[in-house]
């Protein structure tokens, strides 16, 4: 069974790669065009997904104009609703169907997930995992670290769903272990914790975070959750999906084949990506999410980027005890 292996990548390595497919997202956040403006490698095909509910947002219009006119891509965003994963899947299927690989080839995909909902990039990974490319697949995920200029306010959650390709098996469901990645909104984790009701709960917080004070800010925002729901907190850097994934594995490994493990990624997207990878690689691990909607504020790029290379392997490189 295929395994998605992750390693950190430098910008230099990324610049020296030519891609068969590049996928961007156009939203209202300023950062949604930061990396595409920086990116200089060749790409045979470019897809930009836009948010249907941001169509009237002035920042979205500026970002959309960037993709359509001022950037080198000259591509109009394909507009999707938040839940429209079917259309996303079909678009990807169309994009790769005519790919003909040479014998020594590999298929290289670039995904800028900075402004993508977790649902979308989970579906992209799910597609990559499920589609038989006939050659090795390399998928580089890029994240522009963001500065949140507006504080989150309490808002209603959407219906919780298991992210695409992130279902867990129910065979070991006598106990549940919850691993909550925490961000700046206290309500989401508490509300989902009440619904999942894990037997054991652990928290994951970014350290270092996007900015110097973000770790402390996340701890303060989630004070009640950490005190009343969580049995322990583990820290993982925002700038390494490889390290975050490894830390997550250490957290859930003792519970494999004993309990159902549920990842709930409310924290920064690199942590969410690590959680999604864990759910896709381990049958007992599921990744559940409930969106709180965007803050509507223009998230500015700090100009740092986090790059991760995900390789689709035929089997897990780890021995399972």
């Amino acid at each position: 069974m295929s395994y998605l292996d992750v390693n950190d990548l430098s910008i230099e390595e990324l610049d020296s790669t030519e891609y068969d497919l590049s996928i961007f997202a156009c939203g209202y956040e300023e950062r949604s065009i930061f990396f595409p403006g920086l990116f200089s490698s060749a790409s045979s095909k470019v897809i930009v997904f836009g948010f249907s509910d941001s169509a009237e947002n002035s920042d979205y219009k500026l970002n959309s104009a960037f993709y359509s006119h001022s950037s080198r891509y000259k591509v109009d965003p394909i507009v999707l609703g938040y839940h429209d994963v079917n259309k996303l899947f079909a678009t990807l299927l169309d994009a790769v169907e005519n790919f003909v690989a040479g014998p020594a080839d590999s298929f290289k995909v670039l995904v800028d997930y900075s402004s993508m909902p977790r649902l979308w990039y989970s579906e992209i990974l799910n597609f990559i995992k499920s589609y038989d490319f006939g050659v090795p697949v390399v998928c580089d995920f890029v994240y522009s670290v963001g500065e949140h200029v507006k504080a989150y306010t309490g808002s209603q959650l959407s219906d919780p769903i298991v992210l695409p390709g992130c279902g867990g098996i129910s065979t070991y469901n006598k106990e549940t272990v919850g691993i909550f990645s925490l961000g700046f909104n206290e309500g989401g984790p508490i509300c989902l914790h009440r619904k999942i009701e894990p037997d054991k709960t652990f928290s994951l917080i970014a350290r270092p975070g996007a900015l110097e004070d973000y770790t402390e800010k996340a701890i303060q925002c989630n004070k009640v959750f950490l005190e009343s729901c969580s049995m322990g907190t583990v820290y993982a850097p925002i700038d390494s999906v490889e390290r975050s994934y490894s830390i997550l594995r250490e957290m859930f490994y003792p519970y494999l084949q004993v309990a159902s493990v549920v990842m709930v990624p409310f924290g920064p997207k690199p942590h969410a990506l690590a959680s999604i990878l864990a759910a896709m690689n381990y049958p007992e691990v599921a990744c559940l999410y409930s969106s709180m909607g965007g803050s509507g504020a223009a998230v500015k790029p700090t100009t740092e980027v986090v790059i991760s290379r995900i390789k689709k392997l035929d089997a897990s490189p780890y021995i399972r005890f």
Binding site: I161, V162, S170, N173, T176, A286
Partner: peptide
């Protein structure tokens, strides 16, 4: 038989 959200939540995203 617990109908855990972690598998019931999967039923809801099988939109295809």
């Amino acid at each position: 038989v617990p109908m855990r959200l972690s598998w019931v939540g999967e039923l809801k995203n099988a939109v295809w």
